[in-house]
Amino acid sequence: MNKSKRQFLGRTLGVSAGMAVTALLGSSRALASVEDVQKAIEAFSGGKTPAEGVVTLTTPEIAENGNSVPISVSVDSPMSEDDYVESVMILAEDNPSALVATFHFSPASGEAVASTRMRLARTQNVLAVAKMSNGDVYSATNNIKVTIGGCGG
């Protein structure tokens, strides 16, 4: 948090250089991240492409500080012994590392509902991918705007 001016400058230059390269080559950091996210989803879903629906993701439209962004996920399911939600993986596409957390439920959960707080490095999409006990996979995506450039600590 306590960056010296030189470190800050170095980082800023690094970012500008990165952007210049991106512009020249027509590729982007975000694309690489999308690949990471795809890989993570495939590993989690066993190669299945998630269907839309069933998952409800609740996040603020604007996060006042990226250090603590509330996230709530809810999945429609009877949560019975033979039909329940096994896991929900949370991913943040544009974080340095996309994985945020993975919730594991059981029929004893009663409802597949969970909330936590996460760090977001910048404005980006956050995904929740749910895996059901029968192997079906669903996902939901929200965009969250992250406020950067406030007063320092």
Partner: peptide, 26 residues
């Protein structure tokens, strides 16, 4: 707003305050 910060009246009735930026009491 000053840049992205919504300016308050700067009242001191909540200190020490939990600040999300530091994720600690300030």
């Amino acid at each position: 707003y000053i840049r992205a910060d919504h300016l308050s009246q700067g009242n001191v009735n909540g200190f020490p305050t939990y600040r999300l930026k530091q994720s600690a009491l300030v």
